[in-house]
Write a protein that binds this DNA or RNA. Structure first.
Length: 243
DNA sequence: AAGTAAGTCAACCGCCACGAT
DNA sequence: GATCGTGGCGGTTGACTTACT
């Protein structure tokens, strides 16, 4: 029988998104909220598949995303959660507000995996590479022989970190070098636009309280950097006005 | 300066879960 | 209960960037 493709492949654009496409998608979602993704491309005037639109939105355009590298504590949390959950990136991402599963997955594969291997830890089992089965993978406790292990213990002993990962991040500067945590490309926001906080990415009933706890910017803050960013001479019709 | 290797990350693909019918 | 449509997830790819020779 076979499934219908999520969208007919003919005439569907693939590859990197352009600024104009981003803008179309954003303004559509701002005006209509997140509805049936299959219909979004048609309604928004995009030659993209609905899946692609959803991915672009959730992984890149969502206004509540943090950008830039994961902090030490976020990384540690990812390691701990991975030890418990395995490759359930979306579950792990759910514990790190402002981070996407794709981002965490990428970071795991490019940074953390290597780091663990260097430390002599199997990134799959979270066990030391040289000894195979000293303790259960889901319980990284007891041994305090090397750094990473004791770090795991630290996290495990702090279940509070699971509640508010950035609490001990000195959250206002969650990335340490947060300046390079690139903001959402602001060319896509109209000045004065204020994305509606859809329930799907409202974490609590009181977004502001939540943000203040976990270190996410409020909308006002978001708009501030958006406007600041616009001052960096991003002016033309959706193209980046580089240097 | 040019060529190559390694690293990074946005985006795609295929599968699965789940709700509607 | 079976089928269909849709959203979501995890694995993978490939374009691009950076580091190295």
């Amino acid at each position: 029988m076979g499934r219908q493709p999520c969208c007919d492949k003919l005439g569907v654009k693939k590859g990197p998104w352009t600024a104009a496409e981003d803008k179309k998608l954003i303004s559509f979602i701002l005006n209509n909220g997140q509805c049936c993704w299959r219909a979004v491309p048609k309604l928004a005037g995009l030659s993209r598949c609905g899946k692609s639109c959803r991915l672009r939105w959730t992984n890149y355009l969502r206004p509540d995303l943090k950008r830039g590298l994961l902090t030490e504590s976020e990384e540690q949390l990812v390691i701990d959660l991975h030890a418990r959950l395995g490759n359930r990136w979306s579950k792990i991402a759910a514990k790190l507000p402002g981070r996407t599963d794709n981002e965490i997955k990428n970071h795991w594969n490019t940074h953390i995996k290597k780091k663990l291997l260097k430390m002599g830890i199997d990134p799959v089992t979270h066990e030391p590479l040289n000894k195979s089965c000293s303790s259960s993978p889901s319980a990284p406790v007891e041994t305090k022989t090397d750094d990473s292990r004791s770090q795991l213990i630290q996290v495990n002993e702090r279940p509070d970190m699971l509640q508010s990962p950035s609490e001990n991040n000195s959250s206002s500067n969650i990335n340490g070098d947060d300046q390079d945590s690139l903001p959402l490309p602001s060319y896509i926001w109209e000045e004065g636009d204020k994305p509606l906080i859809d329930e799907s990415w409202s974490f609590t009933s009181n977004q502001e309280d939540f943000n203040s706890v976990i270190g996410l910017p409020t909308w006002e803050e978001n708009c501030e950097w958006l406007l600041d960013y616009q001052d960096f001479s991003i002016t033309d019709d959706f193209g980046l006005n580089s240097s």
